[in-house]
Design a protein around this nucleic acid. Sequence first.
DNA 1: TTGAAAGCGCTAACAA
DNA 2: TTGTTAGCGCTTTCAA
Lengths: 338, 338
Amino acid sequence: MKRPTMKDVARAAGVSPMTVSRVVSGDAGTSPGTAAKVEQAVRKLGYQRNDNARHLRQKNPGTSTIGLVVDDLANPFYALMARSVEDEAHRRGYVVLVGSTNDEPRREREVIAAFTARQVDGLIIVPTVGGHAFLKQPMASGTRVVCVDRPAEGLAVDTVTVDNRVGARRAVTHLLDRGHTRIAYLGDRREIWTQAERHGGYLDALTARGISMDPDLVRHGLRSPAQVAAALLSLRAVTDPPTAVFTSNDLITLGVLDGLERPTPMAIVGFDDLPLADRLNPPLTVVSQDPLALGWTAASLLFSRIEGIPSAPRDVVLLTHLIVRSSGEFHGPGRDPA
Amino acid sequence: MKRPTMKDVARAAGVSPMTVSRVVSGDAGTSPGTAAKVEQAVRKLGYQRNDNARHLRQKNPGTSTIGLVVDDLANPFYALMARSVEDEAHRRGYVVLVGSTNDEPRREREVIAAFTARQVDGLIIVPTVGGHAFLKQPMASGTRVVCVDRPAEGLAVDTVTVDNRVGARRAVTHLLDRGHTRIAYLGDRREIWTQAERHGGYLDALTARGISMDPDLVRHGLRSPAQVAAALLSLRAVTDPPTAVFTSNDLITLGVLDGLERPTPMAIVGFDDLPLADRLNPPLTVVSQDPLALGWTAASLLFSRIEGIPSAPRDVVLLTHLIVRSSGEFHGPGRDPA
DNA sequence: TTGAAAGCGCTAACAA
DNA sequence: TTGTTAGCGCTTTCAA
C-alpha cells in the first residue's frame, strides 16, 4: 500500500541506499553484478523514484516542470496552443501543469501560486487584465516567465503576440473595399489587450478612409453568446443599420453566425479562423493567426531562459493573415438568397 | 536569486523555523505579535512555502496534484473535457498535470511515469490501445486511476464512457429510415475501443434491417485528413457507390466535409457534434456526446476515490443524442443544388 | 566499487 | 506559546 522507498529496495537487494540511488539514476560506478541485483529488487517491489524528494536535494536545480496558464483551455485557440507547448515540453523531458484563469485575476493568482509552490521552473501565461507585479517575486527567485497572446501589465518579460492591430485593420479595410461604410465592431472587454488592439485596427481603417466612427456601431464587453445575440439585435435596430460587422474573436464570430439567418443578411469578417468556415454560406472571411506557432515560440523562449540564456526581454510578433472567402461582399437591402 | 526558505524567514523575524511553519500554514498556537513579525518577514523576503518539501514530510498524505492524460489536447473534444476536469480540480484545491499520448502506448507510458514520479494523487486517463497492466504497480502504492472515453485493457478501474454503440446504431438507422441502403462507414483504427463500438453499432443497424454489410463500403484506420480524402475518393469509385456515409469521429467528419462539393452530394451523419454544424448546407446531423459531463464525472469519481471512498470499480455510461438536422436526407443521383 | 554521514525544506512529536 | 529533535526520500560529499 505504501510506496516502497530506496531503503526498501536496498534492504531487498542487500546493498546500501546509495547504491540503489546510483543504479536507479543511471550513474556510473556500480559493478554489473550489483546493478543487476538492484534492478531485480526494483522490479520485484515495483519501485519508482520519488522525483519530488530528488529535486529537493539535487544540486542541479529544477523540477523539469513548467506551468501553462491560459484564459480558457476549452477555447480551441488555447487548446491548440497548449498542445504545442506540451509537445515541446515533452520533447525536452518536462511535464506541464495547466490552468485556466477565466480571465479572473484572482483565479490567475491562485493558479500561479499553486504552481510556484510546486517549484515550477517556468511559467507560460496568457495574462489577465490586472497588473502583474506580483510575478516579480517568483521571478527574482528563479522562476522564468513568458507571456503569450498578450503582454502583462507592469512586467518586462519575453512576450509572444501577433500583429492584432494590423490584422484587424486589414479585415475592416477589406470590408471598406467592398463598398461598406456602415461597419460595426463587436468585441470582448476592451481592457483585454488583444481587444484594444483590434479595436484600434478597426479605427485605423476607418480613419484612413476618412470615415468617422459611429459609437452606435461599437459594442465592447461581449463574453457570452447571449450578450452577442443581444448586441446584434440592438445593432440591427439603429437608424441606418450596419451592412457589415467585424467580430473581434472566434467566440463572438460564432455568436453572430448563430444569431443571423441564412444566407447571412450582413457581411461579416472575423478575427480567428474556424473549422468549417469555408463551408458556410457564404464562406467566412477571417483574419487567422497560428496558435501552434504561438505556443511553440513561447515554449522555445521559455526553455532557452531556463537553460540560462540571458539578454533583455524579447518581444516576438507573429503575423496574421487575411483569408478572403466571401462573407465580406456587399449586398444591398432586400437581397435575395442565392 | 535563490528562493528564501523558512530558515531565512525565521532569522529575519527572530524566531524559530517551527514558528514560521505554524504561521505560514495557518496553524493555531502563535501569539498575534509573533505572527505579525513573521508575516512581515515573509513579505519582505517574498517567501513562499515549498510544497514539494512539505508533502514529503507531512503525515496527511497527498500532493494535491492529479494527472490528466488524453489522446490529443488539441482535439476540441478533449479540450472541453480537460477544462471540465481542471475546473473541478481547482474547486477542490488541486492542480493538474496534463499530457497527450497521440495514441502511442510508448508516449503514454512516459507521460504516466513522469506524473507518478511526481507523486500525483490520481490519474484520469484516456487509455491508448495497448494493455495497461503497468498501472497496477502505481495503483498498488496508492495512485488512484479513472478511465474516461474508453476502458483500459486488463485493468479494473472506474470508467466513464458513452453509449457509443447505441449512438452509432441510431445514426445509421436514421440513414436507413431516409431510404439509404448503400451506407459507408469511415472510422479511425478499429483497435480503439470507441471505434470498434461505433462500427458495431453500424453493423447492428444494418443487420436489424436485413442488409448485409458490404466490405467495400467500410474503411478503418483513418487518422489524417489526407487518409480521409483518399478513402472518400475510393468510396465514390466503387461500383454502386454509397449514397450516405457514417463518420465515426469529429476529425473524420471534418475531413469528409472538406472533400465534398457543396451542396453535399452524399448524405452524411457524424459522431460528435461540431460548432457551426447547424449552419452548413445542408445542416449536419450528428450523434452528440457531452465532453464536459464526461470530464466532470471522471473527476468526481477520482476525487471520491482519493478521499478514500472504497467499493468495486464503477462503470458509468453517459448517453448520446441524435441531433437531426438534415444532412441525412436521401437524394437520387443527378441531384440539383437547391 | 561501495557505504556512512549530512542535509535539501519542511513538519510531527515532544519538551520547555 | 515557543523551540528542539528527528526524519520524510533522496543525493552530495567524502571516506573506506
